[in-house]
Every structure is written in structure tokens, then in C-alpha cells.
Design a protein around this nucleic acid. Sequence first.
DNA 1: CCGTATCCTAAGGGATACTG
DNA 2: CAGTATCCCTTAGGATACGG
Lengths: 119, 119
Amino acid sequence: MEKQSKTTKGINKVCKHNIRAIHDTLDVIGGKWKISIISCLSFYPMRYSELLREVEGISGKMLSRELKELEMNQLITREVLSTQPITVQYQLTEYGETLKPLTLTIADWGLNHRKQIIG
Amino acid sequence: MEKQSKTTKGINKVCKHNIRAIHDTLDVIGGKWKISIISCLSFYPMRYSELLREVEGISGKMLSRELKELEMNQLITREVLSTQPITVQYQLTEYGETLKPLTLTIADWGLNHRKQIIG
DNA sequence: CCGTATCCTAAGGGATACTG
DNA sequence: CAGTATCCCTTAGGATACGG
């Protein structure tokens, strides 16, 4: 009877299962900027130029590229407002809102980490 | 009195604050494989070759590179066992364990996401 | 078994200039 | 204001071969 082997096999299955799930998530919100953009929009809808200001370090090219991908994945909506001049409003969809816990968890850990390495 | 302006300014501060925290986290566990490796090791300590098997798709070069970085950030420990032949055991440090909620949140979202796009 | 070294390609990403 | 296009450099990452 290989009790241990069976247990190990079971855990490995769970392990691979989790890794696949993690991979799925990263496909959607991986990359350097997406989580930051989502975190920003979780406060309130923003225009392109606002995001450019808030997400420090991002370039215009990357911002529009990432926004397009987030829109494709139905996490945000893009709305052209007929102001003068025209402005564009981005906001989280209901589905995008489901990422809030994730962004908060990530931000929390980073906050604590900074304390750890400083202190 | 610009009530709205003041409020907005306050929120923007929180926003940038969060983005900085997110950036800090991604500095440590960003990249394609680190979260997967941590997720794996959260089940039990593993050897190099086990990880190579569990983390599907990773190459040997990337695995050792990522492990080294995780070790540098004190998230995992590397222990050479004097077996025959020599094996190397990796495991989460106590600090590394603090990432568990994060990996779980990410895995959960990915699991649900797969259901969404299939269903 | 546990890596490192080398080589090479593809993707990431910044700067700048330009368009509607 | 909200992007697109171009150029160009840097990093990610795979394959293979080799060393301890």
C-alpha cells in the first residue's frame, strides 16, 4: 500500500489545478500596469489623461494598449463623451469590480512589505 | 469652496498610494512564474525537479532564476540535503507564507473566470 | 540530480512625432 | 483631448550543451 504516494498524487493534482487557475488570471491582468489601472478605476471612472497622471510611469502607448485589452476582456467600458473637446471615460464593469478584492490584497501586501524592508 | 476638488484630490492621493503599494508587490512576485512557484510550495516543500514537473511550461533556466530571486527576497529557503545523489529542498519561509492569501485570491478569480468564459 | 553558460528570438516598453 | 505610428533598445524566455 503506497499511502504516501496516493496523498502526494492528490496534492500534486490540486497544485497543478491551482497553477492553471493562476495562469488564467495572469492572462487577463498580468503585465506591468493592468492591476494598477484597475485599482485606479476602482475609485471612480477616469478619463485617459487622468489615468496617465495617476498611473505614475506609464507611457501613453502602454496605457492605450492596456485599456484596449481590458476592454476586450470586459473588465472596463470605454465611453466617448460629447464634451468640447471630446473626452473619453473609462470605468470598471460589474465583472471588473470582482477584481477589487484581488487588487486590495496585492496593495496590502506591498504596504506591509515596505514596512518590513525599511524597518 | 471647492468641495469636489478637495475630495478628488484626496482620492487621488489614496489612488497613487495604492499604485505604489501594488508596484512594490509586483517587484517581488511579478513575472510569469513566481506566483505559481509560491503556490506550489504552499502545499509542501519541493525539490527542484518536482517544481520543474509541477510548474507546467517552465524551463530549467527560468526556474532556477526565479528561485534565486525568491530566496534573495527571503520568501523561500534553499536547503541542500546530503542524500545520494544530492537533492535540494525549497520551502516557504514564514514571510513567504504571508503570500498565501494572495495566491489563493488569484487562483480563485482565475477559476471563476474560466467558468465565465466557457459558460 | 541540480544546476550554469551560451546563443538566439520574441515580446515588452520608452521617446518622439504626428493625426482627428 | 485621446490616441496612433515609428523607431529602437531592453528584458523575457526557450533550447541546447555542459559541469559539479
